[in-house]
């Protein structure tokens, strides 16, 4: 009954820790696009795919003390880092939730920057469009981030790499 909660605890356990709310949002979105069964609904908010349900789930899990949220003052901004707690591990042990290759997917996502994942998730949001239109959309909705051609190329290669990893 709390399976969806368990999936997020497992996700963060596999990641070790995730630094940044935006990064977590994009990681789960990309994993979902790779067909891992996360139920959180995403919508395109003004600046990219975002799930209010995921925000809520993470807040709940912090309130339940299954996840810890560490706030770090980085000078010009504040960063929230998430990790699984001992209570979270106990909770997870009462649930069954295993998905083949999710660990490999998370590992690859977690070493990338939040900016890069923002670009990848936005390209994936428009993956029903031809590549040139995907790129055009990226520039429309993320104009202020000025992604270079090289970065966009890297993003497409990364998506292909992920797709290969999950089918291994």
């Amino acid at each position: 009954m709390l399976q969806e909660h368990a999936k997020i605890v497992q996700f963060i356990t596999l990641a070790g820790e995730v630094a940044g709310r935006k990064k977590l949002q994009k990681m789960v979105y990309i994993a979902k696009k790779m067909n891992f069964p996360f139920q959180e609904k995403y919508q395109f908010h003004i600046y990219g795919p975002y799930s209010e349900e995921l925000t809520l789930r993470v807040e709940e899990l912090c309130n339940m003390a299954f996840l810890s949220e560490k706030m770090e003052d980085k000078g010009s901004y504040v960063q929230y880092t998430y990790a699984c707690t001992e209570e979270g591990r106990q909770f997870l042990s009462t649930m069954t939730s295993h998905h083949k290759n999710l660990d490999h997917c998370i590992e690859r996502l977690n070493i990338k920057s939040s900016r890069f994942l923002e670009m990848v998730s936005t390209l994936l949001y428009f993956d029903h469009l031809p590549r040139d239109e995907q790129i055009e959309k990226l520039h429309v909705v993320k104009g202020k981030l000025n992604f270079s051609e090289k970065e966009i190329e890297e993003a497409f290669s990364f998506i292909e790499e992920l797709q290969t990893v999950i089918t291994c």
Binding site: R21, Y47, G48, L56, V78
Partner: peptide, 19 residues
């Protein structure tokens, strides 16, 4: 088990994604 949740109003905080 069923949950409801609402955020009545929100503003940007530094370092957060402005959704």
């Amino acid at each position: 088990f069923d949950s409801s949740s609402d955020l009545p109003y929100d503003f940007y905080r530094p370092g957060e994604e402005g959704e």
